[in-house]
Nucleic acid binder design. Structure first.
Lengths: 147, 147
DNA sequence: GAGTTTTATGATACAATGTATCAAATCAGG
DNA sequence: CCTGATTTGATACATTGTATCATAAAACTC
């Protein structure tokens, strides 16, 4: 997870302005280590900075996703709502999300995944161009705690 | 992809009624071999059976997903809309979707995926309980056609 | 078949998650 | 300060569902 200064510098590099609302939204995101929904973020921001508009929150989320600072992940939540956001480092990797506490760990099993893709290409004659892989499970702490 | 008779029989087994609207919705789905959105299905149904309500379409989609006749897949579409539906056979498997024509192929690389999961478990000490895996690529026909 | 009960339907309203628009505010540079 | 380009917040709107509820239609009983 990057820190505030790094993100602000990144925005600066992109020719974007370090406005007060953006800094507020980024600050509200960077403390988070587990996936969050736009609604959660929105209510958190309303508490700390009620003047910030809803559109700005979504715009900033979108911005951070485009810059690779956030990832949008898909979950099978109820109610059709399936998007969550997750602060993560740049670069290709996958997420492993705890069913108990929501903790997120990254992994890159490139060798094993590459082998899998290779097998599928051989069996289907498709040329694989991309993949979406997400694992869910239970982190060591939640296993110990039995939750 | 199951056929109409099989689906109707399946509904019957579950104690569900083979009503006219349901049959219409199922018929509109079963011709499809590529992923479709609820909106596409809704407009198709309006043309062939305008009296069917929107709620019924969603209810039937939901029903078929629960019965395993449809899968709900997640795509990174624009506009926040990320759900698509896909008629598929029951049982655990994954989808391989063509970026060119939308054709869908199933695969089950259980051995390779099992090995991947095993590696991740060893490296992270998580207990893996589920996974979401989708590959996208280009089918042989689209490769040949250069699209 | 008529009556009853259960289930499904369609209309409507509502909720959640974004996006489009646009005037007003703000920022950066001279 | 002034100017011009970005951002912002408010508002309206779009999409994709879900909840409610009176009505309709199956299925079941006799």
């Amino acid at each position: 997870m990057p820190d505030l200064a790094a993100v602000l510098e990144r925005l600066d590099q992109e020719g974007l302005r370090l406005t007060e609302p953006r800094q507020q939204v980024v600050a509200a995101i960077l403390g988070r280590t587990t996936p969050f929904t736009s609604a959660e973020l929105w209510t958190a921001i309303q508490e700390r900075a009620p003047s910030i508009g809803r559109a700005t929150v979504f715009r900033t989320l979108d911005l951070l996703v485009r810059l690779g600072i956030l990832q949008r992940i898909h979950a099978d939540a109820e109610g059709g709502r399936c998007h969550a956001y997750l602060a993560c480092d740049a670069g290709h990797h996958h997420h492993l999300i705890c069913n108990g506490c929501g903790a997120v760990t990254d992994f890159t099993e490139d060798a094993a995944l590459g082998e899998l893709i290779h097998q599928v290409e051989r069996h289907t004659a498709f040329r694989i161009e991309g993949h979406r892989l997400e694992l869910v499970g239970r982190c060591p702490a939640c296993q110990a705690r039995g939750s």
